[in-house]
Design a binder for these strands. Structure first.
Lengths: 173, 173
DNA sequence: GTAATGTAGTTCACTTTATGAACTGATTTT
DNA sequence: AAAATCAGTTCATAAAGTGAACTACATTAC
């Protein structure tokens, strides 16, 4: 065998301004994490995105697909696929709301809750491995920062995407 | 007009454990950033990844494509494309090293340096916009954390990917 | 010194991930 | 009741990246 991979974050290589470049860092982290997740997802027989959907719906029963899309930063067309698949596998239900029959109120089934419970232990382990070099207070701070970024970039998208004074509008798909 | 986008980081939605979930957060941030970059790249007539390549080569003249790939967390096959394109456009040169004619020593041309200089101002502006909610010491800390993650995940990849005691080996492509 | 093995880079078909645009059906507005 | 809006679906397509097989060169072992 023996293909080739070099060290990453290669010792001798100078990153310079990239050390403080968000597009670079998020991309690099994403690439690493995706690689780790591949095995993880395969072992669980989980679709990409499934875990996060189960998690958000579990916490926010009755929410719409559009809200789910906005929360996860997916387009609604991507959510359709994910949600349909999870419904087909019996992990969630889409009930047309009686009061507004346009939208699907999403809820986990019992099987969905079980699945999520089972999976979430594994996720916690994985996350712990990712965070190994960080002390507990550092983790808190790190996630505080990341969540602030998430909210800030969400705000920016809203503005870019055409937001008429209030919330929720224009230019999704 | 008027399609639909909901607020992201939707006020009423509970994220729960996802607040501390790295796969989720990196993906979400990445999605936002990609969306912002699309306009940015189009305006510059830049390929995805081009900026980061110019930057790393500028700082590390003479480096190999494989080292570049490892640094940027790309596969070498992806680097081939990027580098070829930049060469064709006159921004960098690939000189076969005289001592080891297998590898391409990468260097920016004068045009490449100019281009990078011009672009890097814009990048700085964009980055400043991303980081608006953070104070200077917070930014320092944020990037410290992200760089530690980058290095840690790089180490993990090395181990997963089969690293025989030293550095650089096995299973890239 | 030559066979075997390893390394750097290339090529290309393919997968994964995601998107835009046009559509259906339900609802609200006027 | 027509017009506009909203939730969700569909599908063709694009973007991004990968794996595997290949070429060329270099190193090691015999």
């Amino acid at each position: 065998m023996a293909e080739d991979v070099q060290n990453s974050a290669l010792p001798g290589v100078e990153l310079g301004p990239l050390r403080e470049n968000l597009p670079f860092l998020t991309r690099a982290l994403r690439a690493y994490i995706r690689a780790e997740n591949a095995a993880f997802y395969a072992a669980l027989d989980a679709e990409q995105g499934e875990i996060v959907v189960l998690s958000v719906i579990g916490l926010n029963p009755g929410m719409s697909q559009n809200d789910l899309a906005a929360t996860l930063v997916f387009k609604k067309s991507a959510i359709t696929k994910l949600v349909k698949d999870l419904e087909a596998r019996g992990y969630l239900e889409r009930a047309k709301s009686a009061t507004d029959r346009r939208f699907n109120a999403l809820r986990l089934t019992a099987a969905g809750q079980e699945r999520y419970a089972r999976i979430s232990d594994l996720i916690a382990q994985q996350n712990a491995a990712f965070l190994e070099p960080f002390s507990e207070p550092e983790r808190v701070e790190l996630f505080d920062y990341l969540n602030r970024l998430y909210r800030h970039l969400g705000q920016r998208q809203l503005q870019r995407t055409g937001n008429s004074s209030v919330i929720a509008e224009a230019g999704d798909d």
